[in-house]
Design a protein around this nucleic acid. Structure first.
Lengths: 234, 234
DNA sequence: TGTATTTTATTTGTCGACAAGAAAAATACA
DNA sequence: TGTATTTTTCTTGTCGACAAATAAAATACA
């Protein structure tokens, strides 16, 4: 065995590298393992993943396209910051997309969509019971993403996914600080939403989606206000 | 003067290459100079722009991120097709974004926004008068994009821009075939919308935005139906 | 002649190297 | 000591070349 016989376990399939880097960086950004402002070093990533800078750069270009990282020309690239000043624009868009996707799911869902939605609903209930904040955040997002998929409008779905991603960062920020719990109420509201979708009751789905979204926004704003108060006190 | 003294006029600023390729390809796709299904050849583009494949590829990755081109792994990449079967999802999203952005503009616009909007309004009226279909399409999109900017919600604005882009392809498709004209009515509706925004009348802006969007959708559907009838007749 | 298999050709994905641009550090100078 | 200027360092953007993957062409075989 000579040194030209490189270990075959390290060889990746052609094209899988960018996806791996993209997925992993995305998760690290959304879970705040890479907090806003963290520098992203191409060379470092290339060494970490044992590949050249070319596929790394492609993954970064994709992430920049989704607004998850910011690139200063010829200079550094870093994890994009969370815009607290314009948080209300985020809430506005989130509430509307909750409404629209829930309504469209009531209108356009197919029988095979319901088991998927119910599955995430159960995952969410379990996360609440066990008090696992990270699981609560993730399963809630998955639940609503599944509803959006059932609504079958890719334009709304893609915007909604982007908003849920951003929400994942924001929630993660507060729930790691305060170990707050999502109220049981959210589980009940999810059940009501499923019922409205199943019954194809567009108006109820619309109303419940809006109310549920506003509950969540209110919850986040409560934490937001509390954090500010504490910050001032310190 | 030796051959090492390469002509300085061909040198580009570092980083400007990708933007140039991106902008140009984007325009060619939206104007249907590159119709759906056209193959995109990296080597050919590299020769055309006198640069290596690396910056070309970066531009293509960005275009793919916006759904303007489709990439088959290890194989070809081509201009993405227009999904006629699910056109209604496009119309649904378009109408809602017309409404929302117009309402938000009435709520959040600043004095300096109005001259910009009025400017595009005048450009549009002129395009209608001169019967220039391409200019009509472009200035109409610019007019509504400016309104969306005045609404100051980047989430809505980015989705709306994407929809206007897709609309540019669709309209271009019909208006090159039939030399149809946008009715004068649209100009009047634009004027009403500006008045509602200026007066900060949210309800009127919402209502006019919705009605205007539905007018446009109806116009496109009329052409769509006519085209189908003709296709069947042939 | 029609199908299976091998060979060739073409295009993409990845690599290592180099040069440009900007910040940081070092130096000169008052 | 404080400021202006040069030098160095570090990161990014671009390049040309090569390897893998797939389609097309050529060949073998019934």
């Amino acid at each position: 065995m000579t040194d030209t016989d490189s270990s075959p376990t390290l060889e990746r399939k052609r094209g899988s590298g960018v996806k791996m880097v993209y997925d992993l960086l995305r998760d690290e950004i959304l879970d705040l393992a890479l907090p806003p402002g963290s520098p992203i070093d191409e060379v470092q990533l290339a060494e970490r993943f044992k590949m050249s800078r070319t596929p790394i750069r492609e993954a970064l270009v994709r992430l920049a396209g989704e607004g998850l990282i910011d690139t200063l020309p010829n200079r550094s690239t870093m994890v994009s910051s969370i815009d607290f000043l314009n948080m209300h624009t985020f809430f506005d868009a989130l509430v509307l997309m909750y409404r629209v996707t829930t309504r469209l799911a009531a209108q356009n869902h197919r029988p095979e969509d319901l088991p998927v939605i119910r599955g995430f609903h159960e995952d969410y209930a379990e996360a609440i019971k066990s008090g696992d904040a990270l699981a609560m955040i993730a399963t809630n997002a998955a639940f609503h993403a599944a509803i959006a998929e059932a609504g079958r409008n890719p334009y709304f779905t893609s915007l909604f996914r982007r908003l849920l991603d951003e929400g994942r960062r924001i929630l993660r920020l507060y729930y790691q600080s305060y170990e707050e719990q999502f109220p049981q109420r959210f589980v009940d509201e999810h059940a009501e939403i499923i019922a409205a979708i199943t019954a194809r009751d567009l108006e109820a789905a619309d109303r419940l989606g809006k109310a549920h979204a506003e509950q969540i926004v209110q919850q986040v704003q409560k934490l937001f206000a509390r954090k500010n108060t504490l910050d001032i006190a310190l």
